[in-house]
Design a protein around this nucleic acid. Structure first.
Lengths: 152, 152
DNA sequence: AGCAATTAAATTGCATGCAATTCAATTAAC
DNA sequence: GTTAATTGAATTGCATGCAATTTAATTGCT
């Protein structure tokens, strides 16, 4: 034991590092699938929100609403959405009622892309057995609780 | 139920998003402490490795060894380490034996900084109760298993 | 020794994240 | 009604991550 306790500073004991490492590892695991779709990881998350929104809400989301869902600000989303628009997946338009708002709509191609995801994702999940999937489900719920705790 | 099952594409069901969101939330939680130290999050992780290495190994690590520990490549680490060197916390020197290798040493200031971290981290942990800490420990172990599974 | 293959860093280029500022539209206050 | 405060995006600047390429040093092979 040294003068002061350094166990609390060991990398392997740091939840922060594990989260950071695991997050990047999962992004790496998604890479082959996302390359197939021509999307980056963040772009994929944006598309997930737009696909989901389309099925659940009558109105298209604004950039602000999207940002609240993903916890990202306009500094990140504005250029990202411009790229998705360039790619022909998304349309951005100013609201008539309040010209500050940018509403986001899926293009036909953007909607069509959803159909390609499920089979690719099934393929991605193939490498895991039931045990793994159970563990991952527990992990997801645990992360939910942490997120709730941190956003208080 | 729509034509095909989209539950597997709901954002809230995506482990990948939870990990990504939780990782960034934890980084946000560290921000006040790291601002006090004058470090970014990645710089902090590098310092953790160097502090730990100093106590455990006779030799200073190379950039490559550091990268293996953090799962980061020279494209990320080279500029980051140059910044730490500019800040006077780290020294970079080419190995005599093999001039390709860059060895990393802590400066006096770099070593001294370690002393400031533990109290700040204790303060950071104050906001959590025993229940939370237990949950976080379980989460860490669960992330370990996921990381092991992904790096096979 | 001489040369190809390998290896460790550095460099380049691109897409985030995020803080801080700016800009324009809308609301609130008076 | 005019002005101040607020709000939603966009912009700017900086520090990552990471793929791809380049450079320099070392190893292997013959």
């Amino acid at each position: 034991m040294s003068t002061f306790d350094t166990a609390g500073l060991q990398l392997d004991n740091q939840l922060c590092f594990k989260l950071y490492a695991a997050s990047r590892a999962v992004i790496r695991a998604y890479k082959p699938m996302l390359d197939g779709l021509g999307l980056t990881y963040s772009q994929y998350l944006v598309m997930l929100v737009l696909w989901e929104w389309q099925e659940r809400a009558p109105e298209q989301p604004t950039l602000k609403a999207l940002g609240q869902r993903l916890q990202l600000d306009s500094g990140t989303l504005t250029p990202l959405l411009k790229r998705l628009e360039q790619m022909g997946l998304v349309q951005r338009r100013r609201a008539q009622v309040d010209e500050r708002e940018v509403h986001l709509a899926l293009s036909e191609a953007g909607r069509a892309l959803q159909g390609q995801v499920l089979p690719l994702k099934a393929q991605l999940l193939c490498q895991f057995d039931d045990q793994d999937l159970l563990e991952m489900e527990g992990l997801r719920r645990s992360l939910d609780r942490l997120l709730a705790r941190l956003s208080e």
